[in-house]
């Protein structure tokens, strides 16, 4: 009797687990977990304020404000001692004003712009990836800090490769592995998301940690996300001096 029961259990359990999940299912569940496509598309803009803690520099903190507007517009402001470092993305290219290097906006090249293009995508890159010209591929499960995750490899239209780790339980984003540039050098980074809270019907991470080589380099703690605020397009275009 015992043995038979166990066999039944094994069959049922394996039936539950052996169904091979597909890319479309993962992305559909990911969108659903975040609040669904309707809520997602209803979000036209958002303004996020938070504190960036630099682990490497004695826990130095900086206030950060980021604005995103559909479609593909982004502006981030970091204030340090009264000076404002501004990075913008106008849907095509990224620019920066670093007062230490003068008041002229500097236009970033395509490689540098790519990182901001990702941030400017208000829905996230996995949503409508086909229409956006990216390619996505489910490449199996992986472990993120002891949690099982589905790995989705996204190759953007411009050829950058990013690995999304989607929690197998909640279907929320756990981590994104990508390449970034620091002083012109490619660096592999992991961006780990947690502290999800609901904003305008959407689950949004309020803690975003950037790790490199397994160590946390920067922690962004989000204080507030304001959905659907009015943001002029001029905020995002390259300022004319």
């Amino acid at each position: 009797m015992h043995r038979m029961l166990l066999a039944v259990v094994m069959i049922v359990v394996s039936a539950m687990t052996s169904h091979a999940i597909t890319l479309d299912e993962i992305i559909a569940k990911n969108i659903e977990a975040k609040g669904g496509m309707t809520a997602m598309k209803a979000l036209k803009s958002m303004r996020t304020t938070g504190t960036m803690t630099m682990s490497m520099m004695g826990g130095m903190e900086m206030k950060i404000k980021q604005m995103i507007k559909r479609s593909n517009l982004m502006r981030a402001e970091t204030e340090v001692q009264g000076m404002n470092i501004v990075i913008g993305y106008d849907g095509q290219k990224a620019w920066m004003i670093n007062p230490m290097m003068g008041s002229e906006p500097q236009i970033m090249d395509e490689a540098q712009s790519a990182e901001y293009a990702m941030q400017a995508d208000i829905d996230g890159e996995l949503v409508d990836w086909k229409t956006k010209g990216h390619t996505a591929e489910y490449v199996g499960t992986g472990d993120v800090d002891g949690s099982t995750a589905y790995k989705v490899k996204l190759t953007t239209k411009k050829g950058e490769v990013r690995m999304y780790f989607i929690d197998a339980v909640t279907f929320l984003d756990l981590k994104v592995e990508s390449k970034t540039e620091q002083m012109g050098q490619p660096v592999d980074v992991e961006v780990v998301m947690s502290n999800y809270q609901e904003v305008a019907g959407l689950q949004m991470p309020h803690q975003i940690d950037t790790r490199s080589g397994g160590q946390t380099m920067m922690s962004l703690t989000i204080d507030k996300i304001e959905p659907n605020v009015t943001l002029e397009d001029s905020l995002f275009t390259v300022p004319k001096n």
């Binding site: 803690t53 826990g59 800090d145 929690d167 502290n195 999800y196 809270q197 689950q203 803690q207 940690d209």
Partner: peptide, 26 residues
């Protein structure tokens, strides 16, 4: 894993004043 809601860590002195607040690891 901590997925939802706030998670922060406070350092407080003997008088109960918060000296620093840092994000928790999930």
């Amino acid at each position: 894993r901590h997925m939802r809601g706030k998670f922060e860590i406070l350092i407080m002195d003997a008088a109960g004043n918060t000296i620093r607040t840092v994000p928790g690891s999930p």
